[in-house]
Amino acid sequence: MSAAPHNRWGQLVWVVPAAIVFLAAAVLAAKALRDAPAIASFIAQYPGQTELPAGAPVGLPWWLGWQHFLNMLFLLLIIRSGLEVRNTKRPAAYWIRGSAGLIRTKGTPNRISLSLWFHLSIDALWVLNGIVFYVIVFATGHWMRIIPVSWDVFPNAVSVGIQYLSLNWPTENGWVNYNALQLLSYFMIVFIAAPLAIITGLRMSPAWPKGTKRLNAIYPVQAARAIHFPLMLVFVAFIITHVALVMATGALRNLNHMYASREDGTWWGFGIFAASVVVMTGAWFAASPIVLRAIAARTGSVTR
């Protein structure tokens, strides 16, 4: 019985060296490509940024910093609780909704695991934060900075990718305009991956109507499961890449943009970022069954 987990971890051990070899090969290929006259001409024609629409705002406001922090906090807890829901076979506790602790459907209590209750609760906060973000970003015109408005974003994104992989960073200033690869990444996460995660998560949740046979046939739960977990991997890959590039392309300046809403090289942004990491680390360890039982008991009944 213990051989299967051992073999699984043994296979995963090869992932890291394989990724390092693949990345090294990609860097060497990008350096060779960049020396080719045709690629050099391509990069000169498409340096990496598209022109923003007239009236696009400059700078990153304070509300975006708060949105960024809350989004990171909720995503961290969503990923943790989602993995617990996926990997836990016998939950340590269950949550039962209702003032008296029971909501009955054909005589059976409607209960979910404590991990799923936590996952859905954080999901609700993340969705609420996202709605606020959508409203503000369109009301203030900041949508112009994360929604592509011209087709040249694609060749510019390819150019930026070659420049990144060749370790010869493109000249950029996120305070004024994101490069094309950033623009496409942010658009994909905000307007494609996030809505898909919500739609697939809703299909898998207890809130989905069970009696609608036609709707369930059109959108089967198996389809939602096949999409939901890979989406989590997309978010994890985006977070790792995003943090790595923030630190590698001018950490103090980038952190000031995101956390202090200022364009300079002071340590204010780093200090706020460090405090946010402390808060997120505390939230990670605080999300223990003992703490969750106490919180969940205020909204229903918790049983072992």
Rank of each mutant, 00 (worst) to 15 (best):
I112H: 03
I198H: 02
L120T: 05
G174E: 09
V149P: 02
L202E: 07
P230H: 01
Y134T: 01
W175L: 09
A226L: 13
G201E: 01
T171A: 15
F133V: 05
L125P: 00
D152L: 07
V176F: 14
I218W: 14
P209Y: 10
T140D: 05
P155E: 02
A124H: 07
M188H: 13
V158E: 07
M204N: 10
F191K: 00
T200F: 00
W117C: 04
A223R: 13
Y134M: 12
F133I: 02
P155M: 03
W126V: 08
I162Y: 02
L128Q: 11
Y219S: 13
L165Y: 05
I198C: 00
A207D: 14
F154N: 00
N156T: 08
R203S: 02
D123R: 13
F133Q: 03
W143I: 02
F229C: 08
L114T: 02
L128P: 07
W175T: 06
F133S: 01
H142Q: 10
I147S: 07
V160R: 03
Y134D: 01
T140M: 05
L196W: 08
A207P: 00
A157Q: 06
L128M: 15
I136M: 10
G174H: 09
G211D: 15
I147L: 09
N216Y: 00
L183G: 04
K210E: 14
L128D: 12
I136Q: 08
P220H: 11
L114G: 03
L202S: 08
S121R: 12
M144W: 07
K210W: 14
F191H: 06
Y219T: 12
F229P: 03
P220N: 13
P230V: 03
V153L: 03
G130A: 12
G130R: 09
S113R: 06
H142A: 03
S159T: 04
V221C: 08
F154I: 15
Q222T: 14
V190H: 13
F187T: 06
N156I: 01
P209K: 10
I122C: 08
R225Q: 11
K210A: 15
T212C: 12
A197I: 13
L184Y: 04
L181R: 04
Q163N: 05
P170N: 06
A124E: 09
P209Q: 09
L196Y: 11
I192C: 12
P209T: 09
S166R: 04
I199T: 12
I199G: 12
Y134R: 06
G174D: 00
G211E: 15
G130E: 04
Y186G: 08
P195R: 11
W143S: 01
V153P: 07
R145T: 02
I131H: 10
A217E: 13
V176K: 11
S185A: 15
I198W: 03
W143N: 00
V176D: 09
F191Y: 13
F138C: 05
G211T: 14
L215G: 08
Y164D: 01
E172I: 10
Q163W: 04
V127G: 02
N179L: 01
G174N: 10
W126G: 05
E172G: 07
P206I: 10
N129C: 14
L128R: 08
W169H: 11
D152G: 01
N177R: 12
D123E: 14
N216G: 11
Y134F: 15
T212I: 13
L165G: 09
L181F: 12
I199P: 00
M188F: 15
I198N: 05
G161Q: 06
D152N: 13
F229S: 11
L165A: 09
W143Y: 11
F118D: 01
T212F: 14
